[in-house]
Amino acid sequence: MTVRRSLLCLTTAALLAACGSTPDAPPAGNGFYRVKSGDTLYRIARNHGRTVAELTRWNKLSDPTAITAGQLLRVSPPGTSGTTRPTSPTPSRPDPTPRPTPSPAPKAPAIRLAPPAQGKVIGRFDGNRNKGINYSGSRGSPVLAAAAGKVVYVGEGIRSYGRLIIVKHSEDYLTAYAHNETLLAREGDQVKQGQRIATMGDSGADQVMLHFELRYKGNAINPAPFLP
């Protein structure tokens, strides 16, 4: 059994070695080239001043990628003396130009915010699952405008936000206050920083809380750097 297994291993190794080598063959004649292991049609064409299309046509290749070691290829047009087209050595293809690293997003200009609630922070901004800061508190606790601005939305049109208020502070900045119990501000109201605009509740949430967002040009950004 051991002898048979050894013979099988030796036979397999020999076959693998044969696949990676070029069998002995007579040299190619003038105007021809014998394929070596590792050759590609593109490389052969380039080295002989030809194109892949020419070699494909002259050798009637159905698949230009399927050439094998030992195969004889015509590298000069049929009926010629076999001299290859004089060319200067073709430089190797440069590596593809790396894609430029995208420039970081411009930093948002500073806006000074006041805490919108007095509760404990129970959820922080991560840009994915949480696009703002969550504050705990008791039902009816005051929700305060984080900065002066104009109330541009009051309602329950976004189910996951519950009773929501949005305040516009400039052309670039908005703040949003979600899960309120009572909405005290109305659309169009001008509010001051620290003004009470709602009371804390659990609308659209599974606990009493305030979900607070800061948006710059429509994108949620981390409010923490702008809070005291």
Rank of each mutant, 00 (worst) to 15 (best):
G155Q: 06
I122A: 03
P228Q: 05
S81P: 00
K150F: 04
P225K: 09
A45E: 03
A198R: 00
G201Q: 09
T175S: 13
V167K: 02
S37F: 10
P91E: 14
T65V: 06
A25S: 10
P109D: 11
A176R: 06
A25H: 09
A148C: 08
Y173V: 00
T80H: 10
N30T: 10
K217T: 02
D202V: 00
A148S: 15
A114Q: 07
P102H: 06
P86G: 09
N30Q: 10
G79Y: 01
Y173A: 00
H48S: 02
H48I: 00
R93L: 14
A145G: 14
G82K: 02
A25N: 02
T22Q: 15
P142F: 06
T2H: 12
D24A: 14
L164T: 11
A224D: 14
A13L: 15
G70M: 04
F226C: 00
N47I: 06
R93G: 07
I122N: 04
I67C: 10
F226Y: 15
E171W: 03
A178E: 12
D202P: 00
G29E: 03
A17K: 04
R50G: 09
K107N: 08
T2P: 04
V167E: 01
W58I: 03
I44C: 09
G132E: 09
L72T: 03
Y161M: 07
T80R: 07
T65P: 02
A69V: 07
L214C: 01
R50M: 13
V3E: 15
Y177M: 12
F226Q: 00
D202Q: 07
K131F: 01
A53N: 13
F32L: 03
R4E: 08
P96H: 12
E54F: 07
P26M: 02
T51R: 11
D95E: 14
V3L: 14
Y153G: 06
A25M: 02
